[in-house]
Simulated assay, not measured.
Amino acid sequence: MIDANFARYRSAGFAGAALALGIGLAMPSAHATQQIVGPQSMSSPPAISETLTARQQSIPLIASFMAASDMPRLNVALNDALDAGLSINEAKEVLVQLYAYAGFPRSLNALGELKKVVDARAQRGIQDVTGPESTSQVPIGEALIAAGKDTQTRISGGPVQGPLFDFAPVINQFLQAHLFGDIFARNNLDWQSRELATVGALAATPEAEAQLRSHMRASMRVGLSAAQLRQLAQVLDEHGDAQAGARASLALTQALAQLAGR
Rank of each mutant, 00 (worst) to 15 (best):
I155M: 12
Q123D: 11
G112I: 06
F167A: 15
Q123G: 10
D166Y: 07
E113R: 14
K115V: 08
L111Y: 08
G148Y: 02
D166F: 09
R106Y: 05
T130D: 09
A146H: 01
G157E: 12
I155H: 08
A120H: 09
T130N: 14
Q123F: 12
I171H: 06
R124W: 05
T151P: 09
I171K: 05
K116T: 06
F104N: 10
I145P: 14
A177F: 03
Q173I: 12
A143W: 06
D119Q: 06
E142M: 13
E113Y: 15
V160H: 08
G103W: 11
V160S: 05
A120V: 01
K116D: 04
L164M: 10
T153Q: 05
K149P: 13
A168L: 13
K116I: 05
S136F: 02
R121L: 03
Q161R: 07
A146N: 00
V138D: 00
A102K: 09
S107N: 06
T151E: 10
I145S: 08
F165K: 00
G162K: 05
A143T: 13
Q127L: 12
I145L: 15
P139D: 05
E142N: 11
L108R: 13
A102V: 07
Q137Y: 01
E133H: 11
N109F: 07
S107W: 11
Q152I: 09
A110T: 01
G112M: 10
A102W: 14
G125Q: 05
R106Q: 04
G141S: 04
E133A: 13
D150Y: 02
P132I: 15
P139F: 01
D119L: 06
T153A: 02
D128L: 04
D119Y: 07
G112D: 10
A102M: 11
G158M: 14
N172H: 13
Q127H: 09
G158C: 06
L111D: 01
A177W: 01
V117P: 04
V117H: 04
A102G: 00
I171N: 05
R106C: 01
R124A: 11
A102L: 12
D128I: 00
K149T: 04
A122R: 14
L164V: 11
F104G: 10
S107R: 07
Q161G: 03
D119F: 04
Y101L: 07
T153I: 02
N172I: 10
P132T: 10
T135H: 04
K149N: 11
I140M: 15
V118M: 08
R106T: 00
F167H: 14
P169Y: 03
N172C: 13
T151Q: 10
P159L: 12
F165L: 00
L108N: 13
A177V: 02
P159C: 07
Q137A: 06
D128R: 07
K116F: 07
V118R: 08
T153M: 03
L114G: 00
V117L: 04
V118E: 12
F165R: 00
F167N: 14
G103C: 02
G131N: 03
Q176K: 06
P159N: 10
D128Q: 07
G131Y: 00
F104C: 06
I145K: 08
L175R: 01
E113W: 15
I126K: 12
T153D: 07
P105Q: 11
T151W: 03
G141A: 06
Y101F: 11
P132V: 15
K149M: 15
L144N: 01
Y101W: 14
Y101I: 09
Q137H: 03
